[in-house]
């Protein structure tokens, strides 16, 4: 079985961001980009499936500007067999204008890739930590007409088994689904802990090719990935006014009763 893993490059999760002065978006205080943490978890799960002999090949795929290839290289170093990059610049999305592909466009590309690669399983992160959309996996599943299990915290699969069993995190607890393959699964935090990429693995990955695919090859047009939403403005969150320190529990309780009136 072939497993397709979607990869997004984002500002590193530990880097603080601020709203740009022209309010067109956000910028990182330190220029450090990384693989979206949830994509890392999805990829780790795919590599483990391969190590267990359940998956035959792991293909990491990404739609984005040229520099996304660096993150695909990290994916190769983590254990992906192949990497496929679809250039967003070639899709008519200008990097200068800050035009990002939106989840529906990304999902159309991923669905086309899943069909072309004849994937048995598509693994994605449940959300990207930049736009926090939490949409792409569900949309890929819908477009393909495949069953979906989002927010997975456990994935049980066996070689040759036509179904996978997924434990998902839902409001109030956990839910177990059994999915006929092919299927789409999105990873939650507790699915696994991704491995560290070693330097020798990174060096080896540098020598390996990254394949390119164009919209035309995937049977899509620029209109399929064109944004449907326009970002009007990006603003700072309202600041909370500075609070105060209390000396002890007695003062805390008194002020919660008299000032805040919540006790």
């Amino acid at each position: 079985m072939k497993v397709l893993v979607a990869i997004k490059r984002v500002i590193d999760y530990a880097v603080p961001v601020r709203v740009k002065p022209d309010k067109s978006g956000v910028e990182a205080l330190i220029p450090k980009m990384s693989m979206n943490p949830f994509c890392e978890i999805a990829l780790e799960e795919a590599v483990r499936l391969k190590e267990k002999g359940v998956a035959g090949e792991v293909v990491a795929v990404s739609l984005g500007p040229q520099h996304f290839q660096e993150t695909l290289r990290t994916a190769l170093a983590m254990g992906a067999d192949r990497a496929v990059h679809v250039s967003s610049e070639a899709c008519g999305l200008s990097a200068q204008g800050g035009e990002q592909p939106q989840p529906l466009g990304v999902a159309r590309v991923l669905a086309a890739l899943a069909k072309r690669e004849n994937a048995g399983l598509v693994l994605l992160g449940k959300q990207a930590i930049d736009d926090d959309c939490n949409q792409t996996g569900q949309m890929v599943a819908g477009l393909l007409g495949w069953p979906q299990a989002t927010f997975a915290s456990k994935l049980e699969a066996a070689k040759g088994d036509p179904r996978v069993r997924v434990t998902r995190e839902v409001d109030g607890g956990l839910e177990v689904l059994s999915l006929p393959l092919p299927a789409v699964v999105s990873a939650d935090l507790r699915l696994n802990t991704p491995r560290f990429v070693t330097l020798p693995a990174m060096m080896r990955a540098k020598k390996r090719p990254i394949e390119s695919a164009t919209l035309e090859q995937l049977g899509l047009s620029a209109a399929d990935v064109a944004p449907q939403l326009r970002t009007v403005v990006v603003e700072e969150p309202p600041r909370r006014k500075a609070g105060s320190r209390v000396a002890d529990v007695g003062e805390l309780v008194r002020r919660l009763r008299e000032e805040a009136r919540v006790l």
Partner: peptide, 23 residues
């Protein structure tokens, strides 16, 4: 935008060919 809403709405939007706005 609960676990159920997040699970369901984007898939529906994809079937309708429209980009959703979540959360």
């Amino acid at each position: 935008s609960t676990a159920q809403g997040r699970n369901l709405l984007p898939r529906t939007a994809a079937l309708l060919g429209t980009q959703p706005v979540t959360d």
